[in-house]
Amino acid sequence: MKSIKPLYLALAVLTFLLIEGALYMALLQAPTERTMGDVQRIFYFHVPSAWVSFLAFFIVCIASIAFLRTGKAQWDRLAASSAEIGILFITLVLLTGPLWAKPVWNVYWTWDARLTTSLILWLIYIAYMMVRRYTSDPERGAKFAAVFGIIGFLDVPIVYMSIRWWRTLHPAPVIGGGGGLAPEMKQALFFSLFAFTVLYITLLLLSLRIRSVEDKIQALKNKS
């Protein structure tokens, strides 16, 4: 039996430390927001989650294009792994959003452009995983998923734009928008963004490793 590779171990330790650091900065170091109070601290996890999910879906799109061009299974594994992680983080976005919205806006949900886009994004990528799973032939499933992954990602800005136009009458609630942030808040946010990005990379590499090991096991089974 082989032990876990040093690279993965090092990455895991690094990620752990970074996330701890982000927690410290967000929960203890950053000042309490004047009007919203402590609940605003969700912001340091909400925004990085959103960022990671967009990054993940962007990688899905790139990997899908590469897969269609080359037909190599490793690109498909990358797309599938990234999509899974993206769904995890967009789910976090959808969960942390209402927790924050309730005390601040007094409703769990508003149909503003950003929220609605997140929800539609969630639906698109759940469909993405379903297409993959519900196709009997794995290669065709991968191709279908790739095609859907490309169209789905190109759809993201269009969905956002069209909903914003649609809701012109509702002033889009500006939440912690860039300029008004205290320096310590900015610091905490950027650190958290960095930590979450490293977390994404770690999860991605581990997920890729699991998928390639699964494939190897399957190949051995097929041989015997």
Binding site: I120, L123, I124, Y134, S136, I151, D155, I163
Partner: peptide
């Protein structure tokens, strides 16, 4: 895909929102 009648709207509706 398996369950084709279900898959089409699940893919089609979110993407065609705009």
């Amino acid at each position: 895909t398996r369950s084709r009648e279900v898959m089409l709207p699940i893919m089609l509706f979110p993407v065609t929102v705009p």
